[in-house]
Design a protein around this nucleic acid. Sequence first.
RNA 1: CGGAGUGUGGCUCAGCCUGGUAGAGCACCUCGUUCGGGACGAGGGGGUCGCAGGUUCAAAUCCUGCCACUCCGACCA
Length: 449
Amino acid sequence: MRLSRYFLPTLRDTPKEAEIVSHRLMLRAGMIRQESAGIYAWLPLGLRVLKKVEAIVREEQNRSGAIELLMPTIQSADLWRESGRYDAYGKEMLRIKDRHDREMLFGPTNEEMITEIFRAYVKSYKDLPLNLYHLQWKFRDEVRPRFGVMRSREFLMKDAYSFDLDKAGAIHAYNKMFVAYLRTFERLGLKSIPMRADTGPIGGDLSHEFIILADTGESEVFFHSDYLAIPVPGADTNFNDIAALQGTVDRWTSLYAATSEMHDAGAFEAIPADKRVSARGIEVGHIFYFGLKYSEPMGATVQGPDGRPTPVHMGSYGIGPTRVVAAAVEASHDDAGIRWPEAIAPFRVALLNLKQGDAAVDGACEELYRALSSQGVEVLYDDRDERPGAKFANADLIGVPYQVMIGPRSLAEGKVEVKVRATGARELMVTEDMLVQVAPWRRRRDIPL
RNA sequence: CGGAGUGUGGCUCAGCCUGGUAGAGCACCUCGUUCGGGACGAGGGGGUCGCAGGUUCAAAUCCUGCCACUCCGACCA
């Protein structure tokens, strides 16, 4: 992408409404624009990151055996009356009427609708287990939206819903999602820790929150430091191996970990002092087993082997990709801007033409731009007629992991400089015949190429 | 929803107290000089001062009402 022809409205000043670092940086980097309280437009750069988060979430859902569909954003009030939640949900639900005066709502979640879909088609226990998910915009009319897309009213959520014949099956489904979530956050380049959670209004008796560690996180968390060393299950995980999966979940739930709401000071004190960690974090995922809560009132039953209709055991599993983007910024930034985990960086390489208009420099940049692009590397080519300082600052702000700088000096010395600015950065192949040097950078810790 | 506050060009803000025909910096356009960490000069475009009423010869400024947004608290992916 040529920056001169892209749409990247970065800001030098911080808009005054932004109080937390991720909100400030996302506004300054031209990722989002507020349209109303808690409602944001995703600008091209932000959308690139969001799409990468979505893709990883989707891949890991699919890997675990969940199946994607897409439900609408608008739902009927009648559906919610079946579960009794139309009244129970309260003012957080955005209620609307269509032209025929029918009561509708902008979906805050989809338990009712997925249950309706399930019961319409699934009649036999032989069709279980089943896990259906979608990535769809939700609306919750928060009393007080804040922190940019961290707590917005409209937000993207991946929500999965599992259906099983009995509790044992449902726990296996729960464990699949548990492991899928561990893998998802690992791949996103974020350190997550599952913590026992309150089930809240969704109900049920088994629930975990996945917390990303970030110094500026809104929740206070307490956990055993050994969590930081437990290996995340690999891509070869067999999600159908019930015992092995349970073993993994047991290991990940064996140590103390709790948010301040669930904190048990006594249990925490029982951990050896040097293993106690109290830190801050951001909730980015939440999984629930809630049994028959919706299947019973809504008549979602299958015929079991005995021929009798049996209500199915359900669970639901949510990740907020829009929040994940903000959480990633909270977890990884510095004075100059964002430091994206490489997996979700909007571009992999920023190619900085330090002397736009100089035939030799332009030529070298064009050549490298084409070479990298043809290798499938996502390059943001800063071909604007700007001073180098402005280009450096811009690349730092938006957080491109690898910054390749080419100017007259590079040509004279026969090498290009590559500044690495990423967390979890690995290896970058430029071109075979180019001498690559990692430029040390003051103030920053750079990861060697 | 309680408490506090803010609305002036795309962004950050001054002007308001003490009414008199709207300003600065950044950004943007033109020309020139520049160019390895956010350059400089000259010229230029852009605002019915959140909205509606009122007071007044005259309102960004004073009064009333409304709207929007932000922050703190209770609530949440």
